[in-house]
């Protein structure tokens, strides 16, 4: 029996995403992906000890792959890739390039590579976003960095994909090409999530509560994973400041 333990947003998302990492698979995250890095290491420390994990922003855990990660993914051998975006829209497009007019942007983001290539070739994509607002979930993105719906002639994995936010887990259902709520985190209602989403999430009835992080998961994250991040040059400053004391 485990009791609920308070945790911050980053810890919550790291724990929830770690549960999606499968043992024996190859899972990777790109640069500036601290939360996925923690999720990967947590999965490795718990239920996925034989997972191949690739953390591109890490000094020691990037596996020295260089362009091999690109070709691995192009060959369809990358099982899971983590991604973020500044905007998501109803049609499954996401934006990691610019906010505002693309020719005179208000904000410029690092953008293109993972969005345009990895998100098309990795078998499963997990998105994460540390806010849940109508500026993130919009009817139409300002710039399409990745189109998750393409004609059947474009051969690519077509699994459902998920977005993990501070309020909920959203699933993009390939059968209907629309988002629905998989679960809502403790402390929020499906109606509140819908209010902060700029497109319909379909039925709000019977949506389960996201199983919160267990005491064991948080303990491992705050001890073993934190130490490993610091030791291996995997966002050590982030690990020290964001992951709480055990």
């Amino acid at each position: 029996m485990t009791s609920a333990v308070a945790c911050n947003t980053e810890e919550l998302l790291a724990v929830l995403m770690s549960r999606e990492i499968h043992d024996w698979e190859i899972s990777a995250c790109g640069a500036v992906s601290m939360i996925p890095a923690a999720a990967l290491l947590l999965a490795e420390a718990t239920h996925a000890p034989n997972a191949d994990i690739i953390i591109l922003g890490s000094e020691q855990l990037d596996r020295n792959l260089g362009k091999d990660i690109h070709f691995l993914s192009q060959r369809g051998k990358l099982d899971l890739f983590f991604h973020s975006a500044i905007q998501f829209d109803a049609e499954g497009n996401f934006n990691l390039h610019v906010v505002g007019d693309p020719n005179a942007p208000e904000l410029r983001l690092p953008g293109g590579y993972g969005s345009g290539l990895m998100s098309y070739t990795a078998k499963r994509i997990l998105f994460f976003r540390t806010e849940h607002t109508t500026r993130t979930f919009v009817p139409k993105v300002d710039f399409v960095s990745g189109a998750m719906v393409t004609p059947p002639s474009i051969k690519r994995p077509q699994d459902n994909f998920k977005i993990f936010t501070t309020m909920a887990v959203l699933v993009f259902d390939r059968a209907t090409n629309s988002y629905r709520l998989e679960s809502v985190h403790e402390g929020f209602t499906p109606q509140q999530v819908q209010e902060r989403t700029g497109f319909s999430l379909g039925s709000l009835e019977g949506i389960p509560v996201t199983p919160p992080p267990t005491a064991e998961e948080l303990h491992t994250l705050r001890t073993e994973v934190k130490e490993r991040m610091i030791e291996t040059g995997t966002y050590p400053q982030w690990a020290r400041t964001i992951l709480q004391p055990a």
């Binding site: 192009q74 693309p102 098309y120 960095s145 189109a147 004609p151």
Partner: peptide, 26 residues
């Protein structure tokens, strides 16, 4: 290249097109 289809990156560049695989018309 696997990827880029349907993106605004693709639409804004004239050095990429969509073509049929000559060995597999589907």
């Amino acid at each position: 290249v696997r990827g880029l289809a349907g993106t605004d990156v693709f639409k804004r560049r004239d050095d990429m097109i969509i073509a049929t695989n000559p060995f597999d018309p589907t």
